[in-house]
Design a protein around this nucleic acid. Sequence first.
RNA 1: GGGCCCUUCGUCUAUCGGUUAGGACAUCAGAUUUUCAAUCUGGGAAGAGGGGUUCGACUCCCCUAGGGCCUGCCA
Length: 470
Amino acid sequence: MSASNRPVVTRIAPSPTGSMHIGTARTALFNWLYARHTGGTYLLRIEDTDRERSTEAAVGVILEGLKWLGLEADAPPVFQHARADRHKAEVLRLLDEGRAYRCFMSVEELAAERERARAEGRTIRSPWRDRDAPVSSNDPFVVRFKGPLEGETVVDDLIKGTVTFANKELDDLVLLRTDGAPTYNLAVVVDDHDMAITHVIRGDDHLSNTARQTLIYQAMGYDLPAFGHLPMIHGEDGAKLSKRHGAQAVGEFADMGYLPEAMRNYLARLGWGHGDEELFTDSQAITWFDVKDCIRSPARLDWAKIAHVNNHYIRLADEGRLADLVTVAIAANGEAGGEDTRARLMATIPLVRDGAKTTLELAELCRFALLKRPLALTEKGLALLTQETRGRLARLAQSLVCADDWTVAGLTATLRAFAENENIGFGKFGPALRAVLAGVAPGPDLASALAALGKIESLARINDALSQSQ
RNA sequence: GGGCCCUUCGUCUAUCGGUUAGGACAUCAGAUUUUCAAUCUGGGAAGAGGGGUUCGACUCCCCUAGGGCCUGCCA
């Protein structure tokens, strides 16, 4: 069976050498979407052939990142390093078949050849390619792939289209290192074959490698999977995404108060689109997604848009979940909540969530409701409490005591009626009431603030201020 | 140096030879107004440059410019 008519199997194959890049997250998302779209399988492989740089902690970061994003693989991860024997066996087979050779070039010789090659505008060549190894085999060697010198290799890419490489431009990849360990380019091919991957969807930084890998596939006698190379994600200035662009790791987005479903939606729109659709559910994305609809050009991260999408999902999110996230944010801020924190949050969140772009902002918007009585008024707040406004607040308190419709609508009406009775505008008592109710913390409009605090707390805060010495 | 990829409003994108080049975010103006938001209404904003092909090009071809990737015993 050729790769094209087998059930779809995709994979995300990150290397555990640090954090989980946002680009990796998008690649995972697209692989996941495509697998779901086709009813196929989505796998995870940890590319840890580089023993120096791979760490267990980094594996944990990847696993956590995928879990947070809701993009967990359909099977336990495959660790590339654990398959080294299999990789080695396949290289030995190639060696037997004369499709690979031992190269005894020293690092110095290699460096010199590299320099010559560059100067001559060609790719490097090993003198051991067509030489019979003098098997004085105590000398260290690497095994290189013996690629064709003529002809061309065509990569039929689902996204980039047909890309042609002249074989003479392709160097003989190292398959096995001096210590006998397999290299990435060899391991990916063997693993993707063994894992029955039908669609290799990855970053286009691998496009050039794909030609070389294609040659290995052919030499191994493997069926070629379909390839789709996604353009990279850049920072807001168009340069490669790096530290100075703010977050680039998935975990950072979580810490900054972004919701995973918002990230999925935003990331899906980076390099892919479906008409004018901007905000959509996972199942819509799954229905619509196809690798061949991916965009060919690189995209830039747009923080304002991420914020907008995140706000959309904060509006949709379950209040209990938001309360949990806000609680975490508050704790991270070193502010311990009281016993009734959760109740207060549940009352406040519905009234302020529309203005929050992140859950961190949501926490900030909820802060006024969590303040402990009596509130410490700032100078500014104190200044608002003149003889006149005190009188008004006292009278307002009376009408609030009588108010039995303690909802935003009811309170709005009460406040209106009060202003009318007093024959004043909101400006004459609004700021003072705000200061008394919320201190200096940002908050919603007055009626919402009163509604969020509840009758007892609201009146208590007003009375606190009124009874404070002038 | 060599090979390959990419190029529509500030940003993400739609268009798949014929459109007043559409949408979203951002931005600006106005409305609302008790702060910050939110909300509503309206506006400005694009085919990198140059050649072709064609009755007709954002769309196809070539060149140039700019950006990116590979050129590692990293992945």
